[in-house]
């Protein structure tokens, strides 16, 4: 394997690791908090919101937005580290 290929493989591995972590959070807030554990979380109340209901109609969406911007930030750093930025 040439150096260039090694670099590309290492970059890809880190990228996939980030995806795995971010998508786990993505799954937990929507399918976890908003659906599977909704009823359990509903026993907790914050203001007028039952927590599970809040995750399903509000919280998960906020987290989605944050996730993408975290991803953008991580990838820009990663691109720089491997010299793929332009």
């Amino acid at each position: 394997m040439s150096d260039k290929q090694k670099k590309a493989t290492a970059y890809w591995k880190e990228n996939v690791k980030y995806l795995f972590i971010l998508l786990t959070i993505w799954f937990l807030v929507s399918y976890g908090a908003g659906i599977l554990f909704k009823n359990a979380l509903d026993s907790i109340k914050i203001g007028g919101f039952k927590l599970g209901f809040w995750f399903a109609q509000q919280g998960s969406i906020y987290v989605f937005v944050i996730l993408i911007f975290v991803y953008v930030h991580l990838m820009n750093k990663l691109d720089k580290k491997y010299g793929y930025n332009e």
Binding site: L23, W26, S30, G34, A56, S60, I61, I68
Partner: peptide, 9 residues
């Protein structure tokens, strides 16, 4: 709500 936003992730 979740379906039409989560897809963007």
């Amino acid at each position: 709500l979740m379906g039409w936003t989560g897809g963007y992730v």
